[in-house]
Amino acid sequence: MRQEQSIGSRITNSQVWKSFFRHGYPDTERNAALIVVSNVFLHLHPVRLKRHALRVTYTFCLGGLSFFFFLVLTVTGALLMFYYVPSVNQAYQNVRDLDTTVSFGILLRNMHRYAAHAMVISVFLHMMRVFYTGSYKPPREFNWVIGVGLLTVTFLLSFTGYLLPWDQLSLWAVTVGTNIAAATPLLGQKVQYLLIGGPTIGQGALIRFYTLHVVGLPLVASVLMVVHFWRIRKDGNISAPL
């Protein structure tokens, strides 16, 4: 008697399905291992880790949350770029349009702004978590240094974004910030000119901050994150008691 094949198993046995999902449903140890090693996103993880590493009160998910906020910022930021022109004549009106006329524009802008604040907080708290658990110790010294770099890039990403609405708040906050940079011993004036592209904050500063905010710094952050995550794996995954 011929075995009736259900529609479900016909689909999951088809060549198309098997080329997409190269292993069975991950309810066996073998498939649970395969899904992690054969999926480019999941293979950031090891196949197994210590039970200790699962305790939320150990990590408070802070590193993962920082990455999560970065992803939210990338998506909302890319959508905001559709409505935003980095020109002193248009930027402010673009942001007002987001708040008043664009569908879900205010939601998009709020999410971007609050995720940026949240990322600064979670990155800093992540550093504190790593410090207090001694997780910077050998063999993770270099990854700690990368982490300090990521903290700095997070500050710069947030700061460059602060100018973009081109309202009084952003102009003067960035003026305070770049005046501090101008006080750098020896190089101050040069540093300030490099940052704002002129004697005062104007179109030159806006386009520099915009370009750094949407291309330059996200690229630097991404490269540092790639190294950071890679090193976590290479250094024996998340730190654990000896």
Binding site: V95, L107, R109, N110, D167, Q168, L171
Partner: peptide, 17 residues
């Protein structure tokens, strides 16, 4: 994040001057 973004409006002051 979504709930906070619905509930609380981001500041936007007058045009940079």
């Amino acid at each position: 994040l979504t709930v906070v973004s619905i509930a609380v409006r981001s500041p936007l002051e007058s045009l940079a001057n």
